[in-house]
Design a protein around this nucleic acid. Structure first.
Lengths: 211, 211
DNA sequence: ATAACCAATTTTGAATGCAATTTTGCTATT
DNA sequence: AATAGCAAAATTGCATTCAAAATTGGTTAT
């Protein structure tokens, strides 16, 4: 198994909560599960620590990072900054094909809203946000966005949207698509910032304590 | 030596260009220099690869990352996004003490400009930008900013400012301080964005090809 | 003379082994 | 019964070792 694959596998376990936040990471056990020895596992843990998914205590092993309320606030603030910048750049650089892709996902998303299929809705929602970031054409920005998104994802799992928030989120998305089509960068940046602030406060309110 | 210290030491060598961009990293030699064995060194290289300072080629070793023109453009765009967001948050959260510290550094910086001491000027400049980011109170933002700044730093070394650009940079800094004092977040964000765009295009123009 | 191929050397990637630190469980004392 | 102290066990961190892959140098054939 390749190094990056080991990192990705463990990261997935952390994001999906299969390794509980704050839990000690059983080095021995993971070695058996992944069928690798301690050396490559420890290399992976060091990388995950640099990414913020894991906390390393000297001589006391690795623990799955625990998101505090402050962390969630910080992550959403950063995400807002990254996405608004990405949106602004996307308006300068997006191709018609990319725009069509986003419009298609948006249409799907509206259907999922009507059908009250929240899981499918989330998938479209995420695809749209990622597509906008890709359209920014900025590899560094995309990389950091993915890293921050991964850390946020766990927090979002435990925060199902309320109906009124869901409706207004959809309206914000419609406005986003409109701004993108008009290549109105500052407008899209503003909408995304607001959109992310709403998402953030929703997550912070809705039983985030359970993490 | 602690793991983080190993990472920091190698990172410094990369940033300062003591290990040339694109150069193969002599694993053996570094082991002797740092007086550690290959295991901790390799762990450090993996972390530095995750940070973007090093490129790892499977079965073919590590190389110091080489900044392309696209990388520099990307990094400055991201830095602009991070700093403008940081500035906006700082306006909400900055303390009088932090503001006084920045004002003092700004005064020093003007003196260094008058004395045409570019090295001292740069030190103040960096202290101010870092102080603004710290005042944002967002640990995640600060961490990402430091990482991006580190990658940018090498590019800046080779781009000495021209006199007219220096003068206008100083004016922008004066405007920044003014916006901070008035806690005018949107204004500070705008100035920082412009300031970073100027810095970026200056670096991109000025003999960046030498990297 | 150049290019292709093959062997020798070097280098990478991973497993194992060993010393040091921490944690755990037991005993003894209050 | 509860706590402090101590010894045993486990775990961490690093050095060493070993197999696999890549690079290097030399030789041969065109």
């Amino acid at each position: 198994m390749l190094h990056d694959e080991v990192v990705a596998r463990i990261r997935d376990q952390l994001i999906e909560g299969r390794i509980a936040p704050g839990a000690r990471i059983p080095e021995r056990e993971l070695c058996q599960t992944l069928d690798i020895s301690r050396t490559p596992l420890r290399e992976a843990l060091k990388v995950l620590a640099a990414e913020g998914h894991v906390v390393l205590l000297p001589n006391r092993g690795a623990r799955a990072a625990k998101l505090t309320l402050a962390d969630v606030r910080d992550l959403f603030e950063v995400s807002a900054a990254l996405e608004s910048a990405g949106g602004e750049l996307a308006c300068q650089r997006i191709t018609d094909a990319e725009l069509a892709f986003i419009a298609a996902r948006h249409a799907e998303m509206e259907a999922h809203y009507t059908a009250r299929d929240m899981r499918a809705y989330y998938a479209c929602n995420r695809a749209i946000h990622e597509a906008i970031m890709r359209a920014s054409g900025n590899a560094v920005l995309i990389g950091i966005y993915e890293s921050v998104s991964a850390r946020i994802r766990r927090a979002r799992y435990v925060a199902p949207m309320t109906e009124p928030h869901w409706r207004s989120a959809l309206q914000e998305h419609a406005a986003m698509l409109n701004a993108l089509e008009r290549r109105d960068g500052p407008m899209l940046a503003m909408i995304l910032k607001t959109h992310l602030r709403h998402k953030g406060s929703e997550v912070e309110r809705a039983g985030f304590a359970t993490l």
